[in-house]
């Protein structure tokens, strides 16, 4: 296994800060906006962004939820899929929703995420924020508006985003089987 770090803990923090300021440019005080992290690993990025926005905007209340997309996936029965929890305790009708995930790869997760989100209402508009964009591997026509880092990788490589909440520390890896 050949692996190297593409974002260290410090770089990751800088990237998240930059993404937050980009979000503020569009969403101002977030009164009509909502962050939705995709389960299982996009929720950590969403939480981080929420915390950072709170610091920058001086404890302004920001809607932040987590969305499980298991029941909307298109690969059910190709493998066993066990669901996670969904917590959206605000109304998304007419909101500007920012869907958040760690890695954008084939785009299928986001496709399912759009479907899953519609069960909670009709947002005004939907944007996509990802930490890592593997831009050469898309299966469906989906692009992110806010991107932490774009990388060129091939299918045999694997990108892993680690969070200090569940892993040891914040780090983004690219791994390749020899």
């Amino acid at each position: 296994m050949n692996q190297r770090v593409i974002l260290s803990s410090k770089q990751l923090d800088l990237t998240i800060t930059r993404l937050c300021y980009q979000l503020i440019e569009t969403h101002n005080d977030f009164a009509k906006s909502a962050l939705i992290g995709l389960q299982p690993r996009g929720i950590y990025l969403a939480k981080r962004i929420e915390q950072k926005l709170n610091t920058i905007l001086k404890d302004k209340k920001i809607n932040c939820g987590s969305l499980d997309i298991t029941f909307y996936r298109d690969d059910f029965r190709k493998k066993e899929l066990i669901p996670n929890s969904t917590t959206i305790d605000f109304i998304i009708e007419d909101k500007n929703v920012i869907l958040i995930d760690d890695v954008l790869y084939t785009g299928r997760t986001i496709r399912a995420g759009l479907d899953a989100m519609l069960a909670f209402g009709r947002p005004q508009d939907v944007e996509l924020l990802v930490l890592i964009d593997r831009r050469l591997s898309r299966n469906v026509p989906i692009q992110a508006k806010y991107v932490g880092k774009t990388i060129d990788s091939i299918a045999s490589e694997k990108v892993k985003v680690e969070w200090r909440e569940i892993d040891k520390e914040d780090k983004v890896w690219i791994m390749k089987n020899d």
Binding site: T70, F71, Y72, F76, T86, D115, A116, L118, A119, F120, G121
Partner: peptide, 11 residues
Amino acid sequence: VINRPIKKVPS
């Protein structure tokens, strides 16, 4: 899921 406004999933 069954307590959502739209109580249906496409699984």
